[in-house]
Every structure is written in structure tokens, then in C-alpha cells.
Design a protein around this nucleic acid. Structure first.
Length: 872
RNA sequence: GCCGAGAUGGCGGAAUCGGUAGACGCAGCGGACUCAAAAUCCGCCGCCGCAAGGUGUGGGGGUUCGAGUCCCCCUCUCGGCACCA
């Protein structure tokens, strides 16, 4: 019995090479090896250069989706490549564990969000492990754990002390039936998702982080990030939206008081064309005017209903109503009527705008709609102004000069703005100002499943921060939200507390933090050393100084603005508090595209839409092969083909990674993900594409089996050797560009070449190169074959291959032959032949003679190493 | 609506500096093996054409000996828009 067990152990340790590719067995052995040898557990020491490779952590929604597999495979390919290139590589993983879906699940299934979240984490962790990612699991974190969010709270208190965190009112979506605040995604066509009640805009107090204090730095520091995609930097710059203009005031007298109504404009040069002003519904002037005007009060009320989303604000019908109040033009003294406009935002600038209908498209439409005066004050030579319709040039800053503007007539944009700003300043009614589109970050959420805001409200002392030694304020984990109100507010054991200042009974703040706070610094927490993870006596430590910044960050393009901007801001605050020395968290950024699949649906009798999973339908194609429709496998009925779209539960077009791994193995899943498209582009799911990847794995294995039984030695350079090294050169170049689909393709080409010449003396060397290049993408099969063929004990310890010059040399090369730019043939010349020699060979060639048709060559273009073009 | 990105065979995609368009893979077609099927292997495969050849990178125009690549205009698709993450 003992002997048999011993034999079994030996077999497991050194299995005889299987003829057949058996991914599940190979993958378990490889993963066990990495665990046992602690291949991916690292510390912040040693003389290797460091490489911090980070993929955006997942929300624990239940199970992994293909977007995760794609994201983490991209990161893993980089991590493994850098490891083989001799870097000390950190690749951690964790959980963005607070958020709305846990509360939704609680409402549906009566499970506490904590339990739901922890169960999901356990399942998804096992899924991640089965994919063989090179992760340091000892650094795993979950943002819903007190040891993590303690530091959200701690830094929040520091921000309060520095005046970065402050309180003001915020506008939220309010569900009057559930008496609760709704997220934008919970508002469907203006109604609450659960109650169907018409949603109101409501102003409630909340805490803000003054990200605008950092606006200038967040903008200018984009120039210090050459490793970020230009489009992401551009999106951030537009989001921050720095604009230089003039802030000035219209004065008015009301109830015996002299008051000022401030506005901001980037077009002060058009100030003489002001024919009206518009204020937001929440503006004090609007409130005052509505006191004795029920119609206006009703309109303001209407404005306060409806969406708080910018997209809705921009597309909705622009409406306004007179207030009956007039303000005084600061330069002309003319009376200007004030309107309430539903398109004016209280949260931007001062909540009021000047109306210059002649030179602002929106004002033009507004004035036409309500019959307001339109006065041209900018002219462009050769253009005629007319009220028939809006013309682009009306708003042209570059070419226009002032007209109908008194002393400013004839001035261009810059001169006019300078003169007008000076005159306003002289009257004390305005000055030049830089304004940002960026707004301060509202972090209060009226939700249960989030990090408690560490504040206590005391009748005597006011709002008091929780002292550091009482942090963290722990969130009770046994609440089950039911969708109405915030469950925390109903928990006396949470709410009732003693004031830290005077000791009298007080109430704890029940708002929690935006989950973007959690994800704004997790990358720094991963980097702390083991001792800090145990003691948890500091937010970051020497490990952070060693690992930061993240060398490569990888995540979805949908995070291009908010998450990345908040993280940059948080890093700068941590720097200013003295926690880190770096200005920016992410040196290089890769924004991966979405994973798409086909969408099939049909209208139901009730007018809704019913979706079908791709494996429930057959495609209908036209003669050219285009998909024109689909039928249901079950009953043959016709359904609609909706093209491709992001995989989602609601559209039923998701593919479960689990069944994929079980059927084909992790290597096939990873290989397909890398091969199907370059990382930055969208990826279309294809079952047969996965089959293709699987076929390739089987061929790699079969070639390994074949090579093991008949090994040739070294010899003179061959065409195979040159081809493999050329492909290696290409693969290394593509790796530098993070273009992994062509790296996978190079692996396939190498195998194609090897299969054609299995007896070549360089086949063994060629296969070792193939295994190395393949190993970051499909690490398990590479690990197994590396050992089987005796290349070494562990492919992770192998040096990354570089192409050899001696393998690449050749004496003759082929050049493309063109006549008048059209491909007509090719010629062979000696490498290094001069222009004249090449021209002679080209002109003498049969094809050139034929297509020149006896005409003399006007010109011969020679591109060395590429082509010859004869122009006649 | 605003900001950003993209469009190449039947499909996913390749083409590094303006230089052979369609690498690699999928699907399809033909063949080998098999009693048969699957798996595997070999061959063909943009479109029109018997061929010579012509034509072709979302549409229209331009620059160039030469344009998928550069410039101008247009169409469509996708991402973000501040409480989804």
C-alpha cells in the first residue's frame, strides 16, 4: 500500500509525457509549482529593477466576466515578460468591494451585502487562480474591510484639517415614495426604478473634496505622463476645462437693497450685445421673483424635477420664463431683463449667464424662440449677418471685430476683452478670471454599503471628526437594505455615540463615501510591506516608496476620466500630507477595449424586449455572407439580430469564463483573448476562434512530443533558423508596442515553420524560442514542455530570447518592381547593391520591358531593401 | 447635445518612416485518412474576368512617382458626461 502511494506520488511529480494535450492536468501541475516555489510573492528589496504591473481590481459581482479575463491576461503577459527579462515584478489583486449591486442583491434576496460580497470574492478568487495569473496573493485586499477603509477615514480627517474636505449642499435624485436618494442608473426615464415615482431634484447637505484646488496641477501634470494614451489625456484636459474669461456683475435694486448678479463669460468682447440674462432655477433671484409670481414658481418647480445628468441637460428642450426683474448693464447702464432658464446650471460658475443671442448658438435659439432682441456686435469681413439662421462664423473668435459696440468698435477678440475687462475693473464690477469646468468631488452617499464618513454631530460642539485613535468607524455587516432610506440611520447601535469633545450623547454621520474613494488609492496599499499589513499602524510605508509609481496600469477605457482623475488627485493629496513622494500614481496606462458579443432579441406581446443567448439561435445570412437575421433553435421563429454589443447580463450575450476554462483550459482562453484583437480595441467573441486557439495548443503539444523523440543537434544556418529569429524580432518589437495579438500570431507562424522542418538542426532551438515567447500568454503549456524537453527546470528562470544577427544575415534579397506605381513583378539583387546596379537589373527585367512598352524611363525611384518604381 | 475613439475580404484582424493591401486565425470549398463520423493532415480562398488584365481599405475630393497610412468635407458605430463600477 505504501509503495503504491509512493509510486503515485512520483508519477504526479514526474508524469510520463502524455501523447495527448491534457490542459487541466498540465495547468494544475504548473499552478501547484508556482505556489510551492512562491514564484510571484515579492518584497521591496534586492538589486533587480522593480516593475509594478497593475490591472484595475474587479467589483465582486458574482463571477468573472470576459472583460476581467481580458484585462488580467494583458497584465499577466506583461508581468511574466518583465519577470523573464530580470525585473522584480509586483502584480497584486484585490476587490473593489463596496457598491450598489450588493444592496440591490440584498433587496432581491434578503442577503446582507457583506455576506453576498464575501461569498462572491471567494468564488471569483478561485476563478482567478484557475487562470494561472502571476499574482502575489499575500497582498490581496478588499475595500469593504475595516483595516482598509480605516485609511479612507483617516485621510478624510486630514483633508478636513487642510480645508480640502468641506460641507455644502448638493443636488440629488430623490425618490419621494421610497424616501431615498437614487443613483443616476436607478432613474429610468425620469422615474424611480423600484417605485416608478417621478424623481425630484433635491438639495441636501453633503461633503465635498476640493479637487478644484488641484485643477491647475492635474491639467499641467498631464504633460509629465508620456506613457498615457493621448486620447485619455485629452479627455481629462477637456474635463478639467480650463477657460480664461471675465467674471463680472450686473447690479440691481430689489427690496431697497443694491445687489450684484455675477456671471462668467469667455466672450467678454460680445458684452455690448447682451439683450437678456438667464439664471438657474435655484438662483436667489429666481427664488425672489417667484414669491409673487405663481406661474414662475410652477416653472421653477418643473425645472427642479427631472434629471441631474449633463447629457439630459444638453439634449432637453431649452425653456425659459421671464422673472419680470431687470438688472443694469455694467457698461451701458441699459436695463436687461432676467429670465429663468432650465439650461443654466447652479453648480457651474455663479448660476447665471449673460445672453448674447447674436454670437452664442444657444442664446440665438433661445432668443428666436421667445422673440428677444438680437443685436450684432461682431462682424467678419465678407460675411453678412442675418437672423434667418445660425451661422458658424457668428461665434468666430479668430476673425471677428467689434461693431455696434461704441468705443470698442474695430477691436479684435483679445484687444476687446482686455479693454472691456479694464473698464469693468475700473468700476469694481469685474475682472479677468480663470475658470474650470471641473467641479469639486461630492463624496457623500446616502447608502449603507460604503465606508462610513468619520464624523459625529453634537448639539453642543457641532460636527466633530472622529479622533484617529477611534478609527476605523466600523460599518455593521449584518444590515439588509430594503430600498427605502438608508438602513444605517435605523441602527441605533451605530448612530448613537458620545461626542469626542464634550462626551455628551451625539449622533454619528450615516452617509458613506463614494466608492471612487476606495479605488483612489488601493494601488498604494498593495505596495506596503508585510509588517504593515499585519500591524496596520500606517496607511503606506517604505514598500510604497519602493514600488510607486505603478509602472503599467491596465483597465477599461470607461475609466478614462473619473477613476483616473480621482486617483491622480488622491496621490497629490497623499503627497501633500507627506505620505508619498511621487506626484503621479500611474507612469504608463493601457486602456483596454470592451468584450463584445452578438445580440439577439425580439419584441414581446407586451411591448417589451426579450433577449436570447447566442447559443439559442441560428444565424441567417445573405448570398454575400452578411448576417441579416436569426432564427430561434427551439422553434425556428424569426428574431432580430442586433449586431454586436458589450457583454451584459441584461442582454444575455455574456460568455461564462468558467465553462470555457473547463472545456479548453486556461491557456486556450488566455491565448484567444490575446489573439483576437489588439488590447486597446474592442474584442468580438467567437466560439470558433476559441476552437482555433485550442487547435494551436494541441499542435504545440504534438510538436513537443515529436521533437522529444527525435532531437537534431546544431549545424549550419538554415532558412528555418532565419525565419524563427525574424519572427522573434517581430514579436519583441510588438511586445514593446503592447500589441499582443501579433505576438500570438508570431507564435503560430513559428510553429508553422517548425512543423514544415521538424528535422532541421535548429528545430530544438526554434522550439525553445517559441516556448519562451508563448509562455507569458499560455504559461502552463510552456511550463510543461520546457521541463519535458529538458530545456531547464523552470521557464520562468529562463532569459528572454533576443534575435541573433548571425541568424538573420542573407546575401541576396528580393525587391518589388513597379511600373508607374503598379506592381509588375520582382527582382533579386545582392544585399548592399548600389542604386545604379539595382536600376540596371530593374530596367533589364522582363516585366519592366513589357509594361514600359518601349517608352523611356522618366524617373526611377529606388527604395533600398523594398522596391523599385519605374515612371514612364 | 458636448468631449473622445473607430470604420480594411463572409468574419476577427495584419501592414514599424508614405513603398508588394489582406500576414495570422475563423468560416467556406476541394482532397487524404475512415465502414462512417469526429479529430487530424494537404490544397484553394478579396471582388469582376476564360484569360490577359482590371479593380479594391466607410463615402466624396486633394497632395505624391507611389496613400489603408498625410490634408479637407461627409456618413455611420462605439466609450464618457460627475450617485453604475
Amino acid at each position: 500500500m505504501r509503495i503504491i502511494r509512493r509510486l503515485v506520488e512520483i508519477r504526479e511529480f514526474l508524469p510520463a509525457m502524455q501523447e495527448k494535450y491534457q490542459p487541466n492536468q498540465i495547468e494544475q501541475v504548473a499552478q501547484a509549482h508556482w505556489n510551492k516555489t512562491r514564484s510571484f510573492n515579492v518584497d521591496s528589496s534586492g538589486d533587480k529593477p522593480k516593475y509594478y504591473c497593475l490591472s484595475m481590481f474587479p467589483y465582486p459581482s458574482g463571477k468573472l466576466h470576459m472583460g476581467h479575463v481580458r484585462n488580467y491576461t494583458i497584465g499577466d503577459v506583461l508581468a511574466r515578460t518583465y519577470k523573464m527579462r530580470g525585473f522584480n515584478v509586483l502584480q497584486p489583486m484585490g476587490w473593489d468591494a463596496f457598491g450598489l449591486p450588493a444592496e440591490n442583491a440584498a433587496i432581491q434576496n434578503s442577503v446582507p451585502p457583506a455576506k453576498w460580497t464575501y461569498d462572491n470574492i471567494a468564488y471569483m478568487k478561485q476563478q482567478l487562480q484557475s487562470l494561472g495569473f502571476a499574482l502575489d496573493w499575500e497582498r490581496e485586499l478588499a475595500t469593504c474591510k475595516p483595516e482598509y477603509y480605516k485609511w479612507n477615514q483617516w485621510l478624510f480627517v486630514r483633508m478636513l484639517e487642510k480645508g480640502i474636505a468641506y460641507k455644502k449642499t448638493q443636488v440629488v435624485n430623490w425618490d419621494p415614495v421610497d424616501q431615498t436618494v437614487l443613483a443616476n442608473e436607478q432613474v429610468i426615464e425620469g422615474r424611480g426604478w423600484r417605485t416608478g415615482a417621478i424623481v425630484e431634484k433635491r438639495e441636501i447637505p453633503g461633503y465635498y473634496l476640493a479637487i478644484t484646488q488641484y485643477a491647475d496641477e492635474l491639467l499641467s501634470a498631464l504633460d509629465t505622463l508620456p506613457g498615457w494614451p493621448e486620447r485619455v489625456k485629452l479627455m481629462q484636459a477637456n474635463w478639467i476645462g480650463k477657460s480664461t474669461g471675465v467674471r463680472f456683475a450686473f447690479s440691481y435694486e430689489l427690496d431697497g437693497q443694491r445687489e450684484l448678479m455675477w456671471v462668467f463669460t469667455t466672450r467678454a468682447d460680445t458684452i455690448m450685445g447682451v439683450t437678456f440674462c438667464a439664471v438657474a432655477a435655484e438662483h436667489p433671484l429666481a427664488t425672489r421673483a417667484a414669491l409673487n409670481n405663481p406661474q414662475l414658481a410652477a416653472f421653477i418647480d418643473e425645472c427642479k424635477h427631472g434629471s441631474v445628468m449633463e447629457a439630459d441637460m444638453a439634449t432637453m428642450e431649452k425653456k425659459g420664463m421671464r422673472t419680470g426683474l431687470f438688472v443694469e448693464h455694467p457698461l451701458t447702464g441699459a436695463k436687461v431683463e432676467v429670465w429663468v432658464g432650465n439650461y443654466v446650471l447652479m453648480s457651474y460658475g455663479d448660476g447665471a449667464v449673460m445672453g448674447v443671442p447674436s454670437h452664442d448658438e444657444r442664446d440665438f435659439a433661445f432668443a428666436k424662440k421667445y422673440g428677444l432682441t438680437i443685436t450684432q456686435v461682431i462682424a467678419v469681413e465678407g460675411q453678412t449677418f442675418s437672423l434667418d439662421g445660425w451661422q458658424e462664423w457668428y461665434a468666430d473668435k479668430q476673425r471677428g471685430v467689434c461693431v455696434n459696440s461704441g468705443k470698442y468698435d474695430g477691436l479684435g477678440y483679445a484687444a476687446a476683452v482686455d479693454a472691456i475687462a479694464a473698464d469693468l475693473a475700473a468700476k469694481g464690477l469685474g475682472e479677468k478670471k480663470v475658470q474650470f469646468r471641473l467641479r469639486d468631488w461630492g463624496v457623500s452617499r446616502q447608502r449603507y454599503w460604503g465606508c462610513p464618513i468619520p464624523l459625529i454631530h453634537c448639539d453642543a460642539c457641532g460636527t466633530v471628526p472622529v479622533p484617529d485613535d477611534q478609527l476605523p468607524v466600523k460599518l455593521p455587516e449584518d444590515c439588509v437594505p430594503d430600498g427605502s432610506g438608508n438602513p444605517l440611520a435605523k441602527r441605533a447601535d451605530f448612530v448613537d455615540c458620545a461626542c469626542p469633545k464634550c462626551g455628551k450623547p451625539a449622533k454619528r454621520e450615516t452617509d458613506t463615501m463614494d466608492t471612487f474613494v476606495d479605488s483612489s488609492w488601493y494601488y498604494a496599499r498593495y505596495s506596503v510591506d508585510a509588517a504593515t499589513r499585519t500591524a496596520n499602524d500606517r496607511m503606506v510605508d517604505a514598500g510604497t516608496q519602493y514600488w510607486m509609481p505603478v509602472d503599467q496600469y491596465i483597465g477599461g477605457i470607461e475609466h478614462a476620466i473619473l477613476h483616473l482623475l480621482y486617483s491622480r488627485f488622491w496621490t497629490k493629496v497623499m503627497r501633500d500630507v507627506g505620505l508619498v513622494k511621487k506626484d503621479e500614481p500611474f507612469a504608463n496606462l493601457l486602456t483596454q477595449g470592451m468584450v463584445l458579443n452578438h445580440i439577439f432579441s425580439r419584441r414581446t406581446d407586451k411591448g417589451g424586449i426579450e433577449y436570447f443567448a447566442p447559443d439559442e439561435v441560428d444565424l441567417v445570412r445573405d448570398d454575400a455572407g452578411h448576417v441579416i437575421g436569426a432564427t430561434l433553435k427551439a422553434d425556428g421563429s424569426t428574431i432580430d439580430y442586433g449586431g454586436v454589443g458589450t457583454m451584459s447580463k441584461s442582454k444575455r450575450n455574456g460568455v461564462d469564463p468558467q465553462s470555457l476554462i473547463e472545456q479548453y483550459g486556461a491557456d486556450t482562453a488566455r491565448f484567444f483573448m490575446m489573439f483576437a484583437s489588439p488590447p486597446e480595441q474592442t474584442l468580438e467573441w467567437s466560439d470558433s476562434g476559441v476552437e482555433g486557439a485550442y487547435r494551436f495548443m494541441k499542435r504545440v503539444w504534438a510538436f513537443g512530443v515529436q521533437l522529444k523523440s527525435g532531437c537534431a543537434g546544431p549545424g549550419a544556418p538554415t532558412a528555418l533558423r532565419r525565419e524563427v529569429h525574424l519572427l522573434l524580432k517581430q514579436a519583441n518589437y510588438d511586445l514593446g508596442k503592447l500589441q499582443f495579438n501579433t505576438v500570438a500570431s508570431a507564435c503560430m507562424k513559428m510553429l508553422n515553420a517548425l512543423e514544415k522542418a521538424p528535422a532541421d538542426p535548429h528545430a530544438r532551438e526554434g522550439f525553445s524560442i517559441l516556448l519562451c515567447v508563448l509562455s507569458p500568454i499560455a504559461p502552463h503549456i510552456a511550463h510543461a514542455l520546457w521541463i519535458e524537453l529538458g530545456y531547464g527546470p523552470d521557464i520562468l528562470q529562463a532569459a528572454w530570447p533576443e534575435p541573433l544577427d548571425e541568424a538573420l544575415v542573407q546575401d541576396k534579397q528580393e525587391l518589388v518592381l513597379q511600373v508607374n506605381g503598379k506592381l509588375r513583378g520582382s527582382i533579386k539583387v545582392k544585399v548592399g547593391a548600389d542604386r545604379t546596379a539595382i536600376e540596371a537589373v530593374a530596367l533589364a527585367s522582363e516585366e519592366a520591358q513589357k509594361f514600359m512598352a518601349g517608352l523611356p524611363a522618366k524617373k526611377v525611384v529606388v527604395v533600398p531593401g523594398r522596391l523599385v518604381n519605374i515612371v514612364v
